[in-house]
């Protein structure tokens, strides 16, 4: 297992370097960085001098090495638009996105998984059919439409929930949280539901399909034949056997929750990374775009690494390479 993890870790580094290369390409070759930094009235000599000072005349590989070194300590340069270090901007926005994603992911899992199990066990029940129909809506309606409908209903007509922003936040060091104030929590409700709905239905349908598959297997039949209570058969034996594919998909989906928060953040004017990114595109603020690209890739890679570790926790067949050879 350590060898496997080491291998996956090295692969992750390769992925990150590739993404860094793309980000660097954006940074260095989309437009002239000097042009973006200085005003109209800078002379050619001054430009050349600046170019030399910033190391833009160095060999490609040297520049790329420098970029990787800076990025690895969180240094993404200056935002053209905000005239501030990108690191500060990201640090300001990151908590908002992470809190929103975390709540959505928990919502998707904690509601989606039980619904999946339930619909698999009571396949022909009235409630199951209801869930399945609802899940179709969740899958087929686009996120922004759901967000807008929620705003219309709960924000505009009923006036129960705020329609935009994070509400009041409390600063804990550099981290700002909306969990500690009433308005912060209220503000989280609609965006997190909007973001979670698609993932929730996906997880539900996935678990349902996997459960139906596992419930047909011989060991479930044998467990019933041993007189084990239904609860134990369904949860201890069946559900755990559905976990490997569910963990895979959930891991990937968690990544995309963070990445695709963009749309939800735009609809709810949520001051997170996604909104920052959209604005950066509008202003061709390339350092911010590069930083976003690298960060999202980092989240994906990190989550996938965790997923790989979870495989080992869940499935003993992957753990025991040696023991199998001896056991046969």
């Amino acid at each position: 297992m350590p060898a496997f993890l080491l291998r996956r870790f090295l692969q992750s580094i390769v992925v990150m370097l590739t993404v860094a290369l793309i980000a660097f390409g954006l940074f260095r070759y989309v437009g002239d960085p000097i042009n973006n930094l200085v005003g109209q009235d800078t002379t050619l000599e001054e430009r050349d001098e600046l170019r030399e000072r910033l190391g833009l005349n160095d060999a490609f590989i040297v520049q790329f090495g420098r970029f990787v070194r800076d990025v690895s300590i969180g240094e993404f340069g200056f935002s053209y638009q905000h005239r501030r270090p990108v690191r500060e901007l990201v640090a300001e926005r990151l908590p908002a996105t992470l809190e929103l994603s975390l709540v959505s992911a928990l919502l998707a899992l904690l509601v989606g998984a039980p619904m999946g199990v339930y619909t698999a066990l009571r396949r022909r029940g009235f409630v199951s059919r209801g869930f399945m129909t609802l899940s179709l809506i969740g899958i087929s309606l686009p996120t922004f439409l759901i967000g807008i409908l929620l705003i219309l209903f709960f924000g505009v007509i009923l006036r129960w929930l705020p329609t935009f922003g994070r509400g009041e936040v409390v600063a804990l060091g550099w981290w700002t949280t909306g969990f500690l104030t009433a308005s912060g929590l209220k503000s989280l409700v609609m965006p997190s539901i909007t973001l979670a709905l698609f993932q929730m239905t996906l997880i539900m349908r996935l678990i349902r399909a996997e459960m139906l598959e596992v419930l047909r297997t011989d060991f479930i039949k044998f467990a019933h034949a041993r007189g084990l209570p239904a609860r134990s058969v369904h949860f201890r034996h069946a559900l755990k056997n559905t976990m490997v594919p569910v963990i895979t998909i959930t891991g990937l989906q968690l990544g995309s929750i963070i990445a695709f928060a963009i749309i939800t953040e735009s609809v709810f004017q949520w001051p997170g990374m996604g909104l920052l990114f959209i604005q950066a595109i509008g202003e061709v603020d390339i350092p911010v775009m590069a930083a976003y690209l690298v960060l999202i890739a980092f989240f994906f890679v990190a989550i996938n690494l965790v997923v790989d570790v979870l495989y080992f926790v869940v499935d003993p067949r992957l753990r025991a390479d040696k023991a199998t050879a001896n056991g046969q």
């Binding site: 297997t217 011989d218 060991f219 044998f222 034949a225 056997n241 869940v314 003993p316 067949r317």
Partner: peptide, 12 residues
């Protein structure tokens, strides 16, 4: 049952 390879829960 017939198939001993599938009669036991693989995860326990």
């Amino acid at each position: 049952f017939q198939d001993p390879l599938t009669s036991l829960n693989p995860l326990q």
